[in-house]
Write a protein that binds this DNA or RNA. Structure first.
Lengths: 286, 286
DNA sequence: TTTATTTTGTAATAAAACTACATTAAACTA
DNA sequence: TAGTTTAATGTAGTTTTATTACAAAATAAA
């Protein structure tokens, strides 16, 4: 399983190959796309060599055989067209910018998925499921994230609140005690109001958890940090992808708590779901 | 040569397939990586169907046959994500469920991206940028979405508010006039309070826009609808992927409005960004 | 229930890939 | 240079894999 591109490897190896192998390599490089579609016979003919020569060639490059080689080739052909976050330009039209935005969000999530701080997540899940009270703090864009978190966690039978007022946050933080969990959300980790609230809470018996960017001031004032990288070149004017990642991380935490509660807890969730039934018009399907 | 990802297409087509085809699709989605390596016989066995069934399946998805299908599959796997919605199971561990959740969200976004109602989006962008006042209405999970939208659209120099109180919503809706834009957000499109608010607003000179699921009661009471499919089998107990899609659609709308305002508007956004600078600790980088 | 239609599977056929072995070419040795 | 060894390539047969034609179920319609 080589990390580098197969086509590059092919070109690089060219001088060390023997006659027929060079022929095969050239035939492939001539039209790699076509090569992925051809049978061993067709490719052998194109390279004017015998079929076993092609087969040997494939094995030489680490494949188990010709079909496997084609698979690798197909893979390396797309890898060049991988998802790149492309900034929206002023001359973008309705046919371009919506998809660009979705792509950016998707790739942000893909990146975040790769570098998920699982140990921290696990610790936070433990804190959350043992907490006697949970306070979500966020300002600006993170206020909406905090609100969303509140909506999710209240289902776990714990008193939950979200606060966007810095004064309220300070007062609550200062009066924290054992079992209180302060969950601070900040994209930059540099918002003073939140940092101060975290500081105040740290002086009490409460637990301070933060969802923010690594090695930020807020991070240093927390017991546990879920650190997300934020190389957000795309969010120049409007904050976008970062909060989506935060939301999904909060989903992960909620599911983590749910899984800890186990099967016996599902009826409780079902009851909550049922409770909103009569605020809705009947659905055709059920 | 389809532009969209094969895995996404597979998931999307799932409801329209017949028994054995569903079996094949699931076998592939279960482990797409393995599928690219298996022979038709192995895959047929894994899906407990006959080999010709697998073959027919491949042709149905535009491939010339099984090998060609495997090639396409290999190509779609390159981006590194498993575009499969796999529900979280009770025996999932920290090593599995976080990634599953990210994958589910990613695939929801990819699906949504494929079926984006661009004409509706364009119309809504026009309404938004011409509105003299914007009111975002949402309840439950959608309340957080409405809050997020408020945070984003206030940057456009228009009075924006978000409301989660049904009474407030009704009062505002009833007093709507020319230039007022009521933006209703509801995952199901069946929440009575929101529908009633939309009805009230429709009786005024105001414009009613909704972000909800297609062909729902709320949709019928709106001037313009941005319809999102919601085959949310993954959101059984906690609403998750649907709201993320809603948020990204709102990002799209915000960007759309921004693009309409044009280059001259960017300094304004920059000023807003600068205004929060002194609430933050200095950053090392800038 | 009977009949038409669709879906699925069986078995035969065709295609593709691989292996063992033979042949040729190249390199080395005397 | 001829003989010998070694590496490279090809041939032919074998095995695996994929496809096709057709028959049997299953499903839907009458």
């Amino acid at each position: 399983m080589s990390t580098s591109n197969l086509l590059t490897r092919l070109t690089a190896a060219l001088p060390e190959l023997n006659k027929s192998e060079v022929k095969v390599a050239n035939a492939i490089l001539e039209n790699p796309e076509a090569a992925t579609r051809s049978s061993i016979a067709v490719l052998a003919a194109a390279a004017s060599v015998s079929e076993p020569s092609v087969n040997r060639f494939c094995k030489r490059f680490g494949a188990t055989g010709f079909p496997d080689f084609k698979l690798q080739l197909a893979r390396s052909l797309v890898s060049g067209v991988k998802y790149i976050s492309r900034a929206v330009e002023l001359d973008d039209s309705i046919d371009t910018y919506p998809r660009k935005l979705f792509d950016n969000t998707i790739s942000a999530l893909m990146l975040a998925k790769e570098s998920l701080p699982l140990p921290a997540i696990e610790r936070v899940v433990n804190h959350l499921s043992q907490a006697r009270r949970i306070h979500f703090f966020g300002l600006g864009t993170s206020a909406a994230v905090a609100k969303d978190a509140e909506h999710k966690f209240f289902r776990f039978n714990v008193p939950v609140s979200s606060h966007t007022d810095p004064l309220m946050q300070r007062m609550l933080a200062a009066s924290g005690g054992v079992g209180d969990l302060f969950f601070c959300i900040s994209h930059t980790g540099r918002t003073q109001a939140i940092i101060e609230a975290a500081e105040l809470a740290r002086k009490t018996e409460a637990t301070v958890v933060s969802l923010t960017c690594e090695a930020s001031p807020l991070a240093t004032h927390s017991h546990v940090v879920i650190g997300l990288d934020n190389k957000e070149n795309t969010d120049d004017y409007l904050p976008m992808t970062s909060r989506i990642v935060q939301l999904v991380v909060l989903d992960v935490l909620a599911i983590g708590v749910m899984l800890q509660r186990g099967e016996g807890f599902l009826p409780h969730l079902a009851r909550i779901k049922a409770s909103v039934k009569n605020t809705r018009l009947p659905d055709d399907s059920d």
